[in-house]
Every structure is written in C-alpha cells, then in structure tokens.
Amino acid sequence: MNGIQILLIASVVVIMFFYIVRLRSAIFDLIILTIFSGLAIFFILFPEYTNDIARKMGVGRGADLLFYICIFFFIFIILKMFARIRRLESTLTELVRQQAIKEAQSQSTEVKEEGK
C-alpha cells in the first residue's frame, strides 16, 4: 500500500463514520452509503480493475470513466439543490407573507374607511 491509498482510505472511513453518526435513522441511505464506501475502498486498493471496466465501456482509462461519471453526478446534485432551494424559498415566502399580512391587519384598524 502506498501513501495515497492510505490517505484516500482514511478519508473514506472518516466520511463514512461522519454519515453514520448523522444518518442513524435512515437505514436505506446507510446501506447505499456502505455499498459505495466499500466500492471506493476496493477500487483504491485495486485500481487496475477500473481500467478493465473502462475498456469494456470503450473508454481509455479508469480515471477518465470516473471523470465522466462525476460530471453527470454533479449536474444531478446541482439540479436537486435547485429544487430544494425553490422549495425552501416558497416556504420562506409563505411565512414572511403571513406575518406581514397579520401585522398590516392589526395596524389597519387605524385606516379610516371614508368614502372619499
């Protein structure tokens, strides 16, 4: 095992530990996380296998294949984030609106409703 492998495996283990502490109740997420972490450690230890997979898919190197997958993965994450931000925004809007209207209602008793 060389230096970079130790570093990478250590990072994966730390991240996994962090998520396990955070996601105690979400069993499904934990299973997926464990599978991915296991795969990551496996490929860190035996990087030659990524080359085999890449060649089967018609890509030159394993690193390139990973790069392509990453691009789409990040686009997916960004879209998910956009959707979440929009949901948050509409919740915030609803809260601010209700509070603003309530405040205006309590003040509007001052408004005299004259005909002209």
Binding site: L92, T93, V96, R97, Q99, A100, I101, E103, A104, Q107, S108, E110, V111, K112, E114
Partner: peptide
Amino acid sequence: TASAFFIRHKVNLGQGAALQ
C-alpha cells in the same frame, strides 16, 4: 397610513412575492 395600507416583508423576496 391614515388612508393607505402598508405591508412590510421582513426580508426581500422579490416583486412577484410582493404582488402576491
């Protein structure tokens, strides 16, 4: 405010939100 209503959003939301 004696003859017009005044509503204030606590944070800036945008013109669409203000209209609604």
